[in-house]
Design a binder for these strands. Sequence first.
DNA 1: AAATAAAATGTCATAAAGACACTATTAAGA
DNA 2: TCTTAATAGTGTCTTTATGACATTTTATTT
Lengths: 232, 232
Amino acid sequence: MKSTYDINQFNNPLFTVDSVLFTIKDDRLMVLMVKRANEPFLGRWGLPGGFVDSNIDDNTDMTALRKLKEKTNITPAYLEQLQVNSGHNRDPRAFSVTVIYYALTAHQLVSSYLETIEDVQWIDLHQLNSLPVAFDHKDIIAAARKRLQQKALYSMTPVYCLDELFTIGQLKSVIEIIIGKTIQRKSLIRRIEASNMFETVDKKIKSGGRLAQVYKLKDNVEIAHFERNFSN
Amino acid sequence: MKSTYDINQFNNPLFTVDSVLFTIKDDRLMVLMVKRANEPFLGRWGLPGGFVDSNIDDNTDMTALRKLKEKTNITPAYLEQLQVNSGHNRDPRAFSVTVIYYALTAHQLVSSYLETIEDVQWIDLHQLNSLPVAFDHKDIIAAARKRLQQKALYSMTPVYCLDELFTIGQLKSVIEIIIGKTIQRKSLIRRIEASNMFETVDKKIKSGGRLAQVYKLKDNVEIAHFERNFSN
DNA sequence: AAATAAAATGTCATAAAGACACTATTAAGA
DNA sequence: TCTTAATAGTGTCTTTATGACATTTTATTT
């Protein structure tokens, strides 16, 4: 049945899946980008992604994860649909549609793997303007960043930029980098307690002063959301 | 160039665009549904939507609006991407992908047009369970409703369910129906003032007691968002 | 004129975040 | 060992948007 059905196949748009994988590294928000090995935009930097392989992928989520695994060797701790971009002009080949995901990971899980690779890199968002970028991927990254920023104001999502074990100071720093302003440590602690997402680990980490308590996520937690944004 | 490029066309997924058009009618949240005239799911009720026509549509937003116009004769006041659904099992024909939008309109603009039509109707969300629905459209409507609900807690989006002219009481009622709980009239008034989205019209409407001041949206306003949710 | 009803306002309570002082604990250096 | 610096962590008052609810306003109905 599947092989005989072909209505509208000819006019079907060019369909791809792309991901904006964020991390925090050296106190900077970074995005994973790939130097393109094919036309169009050969040699420019683009988001990791590609075509759905319907023999392998149950759905587009799987496509996004598969492509990310190919480039980074990991499955990101957080993945969510961002938006769909479509139009005649974004891909010179045809009317194209891209499902865009954004994802979060601890850079530690990826960085060592990337060291031996040239065409896959963490790109500092501040350096993005001076980089030759393919398609409309610069706009997409901006949109993903905006969404992440919003989410960081009212949810615990940014933890997924951190390693399994982390301190409150590290979480505070990650949130501040994402939202672009400082928050009160006290406010974060209140949210950590209210969220009930975390547990302490019998371990402390030195941080230039008093040792910091180490935390980790409880098993199978839901990301906590709050009724107010961090404000200013 | 466009006509010669055909890599992966054969395995390209079946690609459609569907919309969840909400309105409030008789103090109920309603969705626009269409009785399917084609296989699969012929005769069952489904969301308005269809294939992209890349000769007409600049992008998938236009596809959504075009299909809604065909069914309702109007362009909804509010339209936003909800999500993408994809998989092997959701459409019996092939691996399929649907971009889903949700939209808001005043029912007055549509209802008279629908009166003469049998296969396009407003469906009360409470009646949805007892209706034969196509594809995964029941789940999609649930997801769209949830998103609208969330948005109503921290933004002025629900105004787009109302006619051009409306009262505070009407806006309060629409919000309450969407979020499923009552809110303080006073809180809404504070938000109306803070939002700066509205202006009074030199007109009052009877409502069983004191006449109600009529409001309308200012020209080209942005939807106001707030830092807190309505709570309880 | 009185009763009723919803609109609109006034004002105090509540709750979560902001501000910031203060204490605790570690490393480094005199 | 004592002092200093630095960050972790706590206590507590302030701020602010919303909740609660009483009061006033203005219309209709009887």
